[in-house]
Design a binder for these strands. Sequence first.
DNA 1: GTCTATAAACCGATAGAC
DNA 2: GTCTATCGGTTTATAGAC
Lengths: 197, 197
Amino acid sequence: MTDSMDSRRPRAKAADKRQRLMAAAARVLHEQGVERTTIADIAQAADVPAGNVYYYFKTKGELVEAALSEHTRHLEALTGRLDQLADPRERLKGLVDAWVGQRDTAARYGCPTGTLAVELDKRAEGGLDLSVGQVIRRLLDWVEQQFREMGVDDPGGLSLTFVGAYQGMSLLSSALRDPEIMTREGARLVHWLDTLT
Amino acid sequence: MTDSMDSRRPRAKAADKRQRLMAAAARVLHEQGVERTTIADIAQAADVPAGNVYYYFKTKGELVEAALSEHTRHLEALTGRLDQLADPRERLKGLVDAWVGQRDTAARYGCPTGTLAVELDKRAEGGLDLSVGQVIRRLLDWVEQQFREMGVDDPGGLSLTFVGAYQGMSLLSSALRDPEIMTREGARLVHWLDTLT
DNA sequence: GTCTATAAACCGATAGAC
DNA sequence: GTCTATCGGTTTATAGAC
């Protein structure tokens, strides 16, 4: 590490700023919603000059997609860790634990992916995007795989019920501003998993 | 009905236009979302000149509240009809039927109240509104009352699970653009009601 | 009461200096 | 690559004619 390197490595800066912008977009868009968030909001949260954002992302839509890919990345990391558990039932319980662990955030801003889906659904007119649907689809598929390994009937249907319960409890928790809904419904989901043969 | 009456009854027009604006607001805000809907959009849907809207509603926020009260009115009308059924279990099944009957709308735009709650949650900063929470609370209370009349344990918890399931299946149905999710999960809810003692 | 014209503010995106 | 200044379009809300 020489002094000259500090001035000669603006290459690393670009990727760094881009990453900061992606993380800021994921957080701010979740908290404020897509339509109420300005480019300036995201730039400020990322500590990047406002006009400079357009060097990294040509449109606001690209920033939204970047935020979505951040959420995907977090989901993959979580399921990746859970995959190391031997029992598929324990993997699903671990997923519930992770959801309940985020209860304060859920009670204030809802599920990041779910609330983003609600907003993007109303953006698409004719040519719908559906990229957010793919993220949810990926979660549904992973959950379904766990049910399949458990050997239960209709793993696809159970996956819909399971993920739907999470989306529903997140929405109610935020609408009523009550994180304990997450705790209560999470415990119910865990108990439900134990009743499945 | 004389010709003179047509020109001499502007009194009825005011309430009429106001009602048209409320209905249009409820529909358009549901379809397009709060932030993407302009006053002009609502005025056009209500067949009222754009600038005239402000005579009836001072701000856009008042139009949002008006839309919310429309949803409340529809909900009260529905539960009012269901209250005429003798069996509380049948009332809840009737509620599920009504939800499934709206599956095409749900698959495209989600639950009117639920999606509105998601958007309004992100509007409130410090002084939160929570008026949408009261509408959901009213539904939760009605459902809880049915469970209580059924004599089951923990009617409040069951109500959260029941309404949460509806919100979750509406969100998944719209995110995946699949109305059959409403049919499938609705049938599951009905079966679940039958398993309760 | 009804409607038009427009003010005032805001935001996404761009041009261009450095 | 980085940043500033600003354009152009849109939207809320109001002023005021009818």
